[in-house]
């Protein structure tokens, strides 16, 4: 189902529920609850929770401050209070516009101030209206969260987990493609490799979007939230290093890759095995088995450096252009493996 259709169904149901509650309990200003419910139905369950928290808390804070100002100004400065309230109303409008694209919490705060000042200018505002505003906002927020969580829910943390697995599958394919290309750099492999430019970045963008609000769905599980943060950090860096490798291989790989075919095959094997381990762990595989199977690339890397130095000693390189490209490739491949090992540790927690 298209996300817009899903949201349209959720918003319509939220409105029906809120209007029914307003009707059943004869809410004084049911439209406030309805409006809150509409505004809080978001693209994911996590986003709805985040916005609901911000909306309710900032409505309370804004309402208290606004009511305090109105109740202070009207008796103390009865003559000037209208002008002062109008000025504050305009300032609130300006600040709503300023914060709307940046911070929903602050926008909610100033929207409430705006409502308080507008009502006191057009009709009246008092503590009982503040109470009505507060509980109706709460009702709207609760309806929005419940509907987002129950009707065609889009739980981003589940989606994010699924996308991590997709990214690991992509990584597996990418690693194969890298090693085929460096072992036998023919145009077909190189072409396939460059295609990853169009796959990696969109995949990362999708992940970033899904990650945005997933933490809020895990509000009550600290350990899961920490694990998610660990994954977020690890996958961001992983993406960074993978694209660095891709950039490095935009030109034909160094001829040294052919000299080190065996070592590169070992690299490939280790990275793929670790990727598979991570994949299994993220799918809920057993931890006991994994402890013995983790591999680092440090020993192979040291062997490569010694072999290169020996080659240079036997027959000095005319320049270091090939060595620098080869060493950088090894560096980034090792970084990728190290990140996978770090992610394995996160998965074990």
């Amino acid at each position: 189902m298209h996300n817009a259709t899903r949201q349209a169904i959720q918003a319509s149901i939220a409105v029906i529920v809120t209007l029914s509650i307003a009707d059943a309990f004869s809410l004084e200003r049911g439209i406030w609850a309805t409006l809150t419910a509409i505004l809080l139905v978001s693209s994911t369950f996590g986003e709805s929770i985040k916005k609901a928290k911000e909306r309710v808390s900032m409505t309370l804070v804004g309402g208290l401050i606004g009511t305090g100002i109105v109740l202070y100004l009207q008796p103390v400065l009865p003559e000037e209070s209208q002008v002062l309230l109008a000025t504050l109303l305009f300032i609130s409008i300006g600040l709503i516009v300023y914060f709307l694209p940046r911070s929903y919490a602050w926008a909610s705060f100033f929207i409430t101030l705006f409502v308080v000042f507008l009502f006191s200018l057009l009709t009246y505002w008092n503590l009982s209206l503040l109470l009505v505003r507060a509980y109706e906002t709460l009702i709207g927020a609760l309806v929005a969260v419940v509907v987002s969580g129950l009707i065609f829910p889009n739980r981003s943390h589940v989606d994010v987990q699924a996308h991590y697995l997709t990214m690991l599958d992509q990584l597996d394919g990418f690693i194969d493609n890298i090693f085929y290309s460096v072992a036998s750099p023919n145009p077909q492999y190189m072409c396939q490799l460059m295609d990853w430019h169009h796959k990696l970045y969109p995949s990362w963008e999708v992940l970033k979007n899904k990650q945005s609000f997933s933490e809020f769905e895990l509000t009550f599980s600290r350990s899961k939230r920490q694990q998610l943060q660990g994954y977020q950090f690890g996958f961001d860096l992983l993406f960074h290093y993978l694209t660095n490798i891709l950039t490095l291989l935009e030109k034909e790989p160094s001829y040294l890759c052919a000299e080190f075919e065996t070592e590169l095959a070992q690299f490939q094997q280790v990275i793929k095995e670790n990727t598979q381990l991570l994949h299994d762990l993220m799918q809920g595989g057993s931890i006991a088995k994994q402890n013995n199977d983790i591999h680092s690339l440090d020993a192979i890397r040291l062997k490569i450096r010694q072999k290169i130095a020996q080659l240079n000693k036997d027959n000095p390189f005319p320049d270091y252009a090939e060595v620098e490209r080869f060493y950088s490739l090894i560096y980034y491949l090792r970084k990728v493996n190290q990140l996978i090992l770090d992610l394995i540790n996160v998965a074990k927690t």
Partner: peptide, 29 residues
């Protein structure tokens, strides 16, 4: 109320047509 529910559905459904349809229908609503 019935008309309002229909309008809410339309406002959100229009979002499938891209960025320009994200905020304007909400303000109309």
């Amino acid at each position: 109320n019935s008309l309002f529910v229909v309008l809410v559905f339309i406002a959100f459904y229009l979002r499938r047509f891209g960025g320009r349809f994200f905020m304007p229908p909400l303000f109309v609503l």
